[in-house]
Design a protein around this nucleic acid. Structure first.
Length: 669
DNA sequence: AAGCTCTGCTTTTTT
DNA sequence: AGCAGAGCTT
């Protein structure tokens, strides 16, 4: 594919540092890849190029495309997410970073650890932040690089007394992690950034490794990541690509304003722009442009389609979620039988939860699909149970794994488990520790037998997983219903693990890169429908896109309507969603939700929102007043809603609703 | 101390 | 519907 003038200018950029502002669909990835090819062609050693992305998907896409352009040179480039990169270097220079034998813990482990600490700090019957809130408060302050004290006083509404205890909890959480040599996601960035800023020797060492650093999705960098880039640049040259209109990660500390301050923060830097959209038809971009136009902020973005005129986006309203899901899947099947590939079609969802109905339908109709986003296969509890034993055997000091494993057994709860663990946790010598494990569990020979079995198992990932599943299945069968389906997950796991040298390597890779069941199951297939969260979809595209459940309460999400910052982020999420489509965009909704959300019949509608609206029309909804001219439909949406309200009030519709509830039952949900 | 039952609250997004 | 917490029973 040839480059246009703007792209060519970026590829050939000859100055020090560059920020490339690239709107949706303007060939951002293409330009980065070509830039790297250009560097290699002009004699840069590929080993001295670093490419940073935010999601594993983006990283993989980059390396694949790079491989087809520059062949084996692609393998020499260091490429991956910030987390991957930091961990890689911290492992390579473990002594310099003073981080040896660390274990990466995922959100679930963090939660478990936090719960233990919280239990002691919380008074009985007291309203106290949940472990998950504690984690996100702490994580946010860390990603923003604001000391917790300052962060709490500025941004939290908790009383002084509670804030004090929160700080104690944070301290203790950090201590616990240090004791156990656990690193959570934030620690990976935090310790790396901190070390670089405290030690000039280390900073020089690391920054001398690369001559060129390319960063994708610059608008998503949080202050910690910024610190890392600042430490690494000069002599290395930065090539950062971003789009402020696609910034959707504020919840993890990203601030799109940092794109605007780029030239101020990085001396000798310049800005170039890509403005021509090659992805979509003008009709799709018109809707996208309209969405940003509604904002009080001036994004100064008007995408124009290089490809020209196409088909207007189409709205489809259904009486309930299942008919919506049914239509989408039927339409996908129709298009497939008319010659479209499965992979030409993408279903976009706001949350994993909103993907449920459609996922059910896809399975029912045997449509090959991969779900990207949400909880991964390795996060599911039965898989974590299996890994707890493997990890406990591998490292007798892994408190979380031991406690998870021991609590699976009858008569063992948190207290008993803790008493056992306490006896061997501080023993450094593994042989001695093992003796203590044997003696403390001598009354539970069945547990010891299982541990022995795994200790004696061959240390090959697929074998050790199979052996562990066999050893544990009798016990786990009682814990879980639908054990058969869960057994299937282990088969997938075994297949996945075959590519890894060690089980440790396997677990760590998938802790940093979550993979859903469906994704793992169809790993080797290449024609499938993509079901994906909007957040994960940034950077991807498809000929036909279905933006499902585009209702009030979803766009904007009802939990994010507190202030303009939140609302604007929600608007950008919708913008990202709409700009994924190349040719056709269908926006589907549940009719009832259009005017019924807060007073609805649904179980959680009442709790679904912090704000109560007197009338449905007061609830913020980005797609309420779309000009009829932008969408494929005889009547405007406003008229449509009026008609719906008439329908809603007439008895036929009420009966229809009743009928649809019966349909729900047939679904078996 | 584990395990059961009742009650109240809740489902965003990712490394 | 599904989970966390509290209080009760084993």
């Amino acid at each position: 594919m040839a480059l246009n003038k703007q792209q060519q200018a970026a590829v050939n950029f000859n100055g020090e540092h560059l920020l490339l502002l690239a709107g949706a669909g303007t060939g951002k990835t293409h330009t980065i890849i070509e830039r790297i090819a250009h560097l290699i062609k002009s004699g840069v050693d590929p080993q001295r190029i670093l490419m940073l992305t935010f999601t594993r998907r983006a990283a993989k896409e980059m390396s694949d495309r790079l491989y087809s352009l520059v062949g084996d040179n692609a393998k020499l480039i260091t490429s991956g997410t910030f987390h991957y990169f930091c961990l890689l270097l911290m492992r390579r220079y473990a002594t310099m970073f003073e981080l040896q034998n660390v274990t990466i813990i995922d959100r679930d482990d963090q939660l478990q650890l936090m719960k233990m600490i919280r239990a002691d700090k919380r008074k009985k019957n007291e309203k106290f932040p949940k472990a998950s809130e504690l984690l996100s408060l702490f994580s946010y302050s860390r990603s923003k690089n604001i000391p917790p004290e300052e962060y709490l006083t500025k941004y939290s509404s908790h009383s002084d007394e509670i804030q004090k205890r929160l700080l104690q909890i944070f301290d203790e959480y950090n201590q616990k992690k240090q004791q156990n040599r656990y690193l959570d996601y934030d620690d990976i960035l935090f310790y790396f950034a901190k070390a670089l800023h405290h030690s000039a020797v280390l900073r020089n060492k690391i920054s001398s490794l690369y001559d060129y650093i390319l960063v994708d999705e610059m608008q998503d960098t949080n202050p910690l990541q910024w610190m890392i880039l600042e430490a690494l640049h000069d002599p290395a040259k930065l090539f950062c690509v971003g789009d402020d209109a696609q910034s959707i990660y504020a919840f993890r500390g990203a601030d799109f304003h940092n794109v605007h301050s780029f030239t101020k923060r990085i001396a000798n830097s310049e800005i170039l722009k890509l403005t021509e959209n090659y992805r979509s038809t003008q009709e799709i971009l018109d809707l996208a442009n309209w969405i940003l136009d509604q904002s009080p902020l001036n994004y100064d973005k008007h995408l124009s389609a290089f490809r020209g005129i196409g088909v207007k986006p189409e709205f489809k309203d259904f009486p309930n979620d299942y008919e919506e899901a049914g239509w989408v899947v039927r339409d996908i099947i129709n298009k497939h039988s008319n010659g479209n590939k499965w992979s030409d079609q993408m279903i976009l969802v706001r949350s994993a939860y909103t993907a449920r109905a459609i996922e059910g339908k896809l399975i029912e109709r045997s449509v090959p699909y991969k779900f990207i986003g949400g909880t991964g296969l390795l996060q599911s509890s039965h898989v974590k149970d299996i890994f707890a034993l493997i990890k406990a055997v591998a490292n007798h000091q892994d408190v979380l794994s031991w406690s998870r494993f021991l609590c699976l057994w009858p008569k063992i709860g948190e207290k008993t488990a803790f008493n056992h663990i306490q006896k061997f946790i501080n023993i450094h010598d593994p042989i001695k520790a093992n003796e203590i494990i044997c003696s403390t569990l001598k009354n539970r020979p069945e547990i010891l037998a299982v541990i022995k079995r795994i200790q004696n198992s061959q240390n090959i990932p697929s074998l050790i997983i199979t052996e562990t599943v066999n050893a544990m299945s009798e016990l786990l069968e009682q814990k879980y219903d639908r054990w058969e389906t869960r057994l299937k997950d282990f088969k997938i796991l075994v297949t996945l693990s075959e590519k890894y040298k060690s089980i440790h390597n396997f677990i760590e890779t998938y802790t940093l890169e979550t993979v859903s069941n469906s994704e793992a199951e169809h790993e080797d297939e290449n024609d499938f429908v993509t079901l994906i969260t909007v957040h994960s979809a940034k950077g991807t595209e498809a000929k036909v896109c279905y933006l499902i459940k585009a209702e009030p309460g979803i766009y904007p999400h009802s939990r994010s309507t507190e202030n303009t910052d939140e609302m604007e982020e929600e608007r950008r999420i919708l913008y990202v969603a709409v700009t994924r489509a190349k040719d056709l965009l269908y926006i589907t909704r549940n009719k009832a939700k259009l005017f019924n959300n807060n007073f609805g019949n649904s179980f959680f509608a009442r709790h679904n929102n912090n704000n109560f609206y007197n009338t449905p029309q007061e609830q913020p909804y980005f797609l309420r007043d779309i000009p009829a001219s932008l969408i494929k439909s005889e009547s405007s949406v406003a008229e449509k809603i009026e008609n719906l309200e008439d329908n809603y009030n007439n008895s036929n519709y009420q009966n229809f609703r009743k009928k649809s509830i019966i349909i729900d039952d047939d679904w078996g949900f």
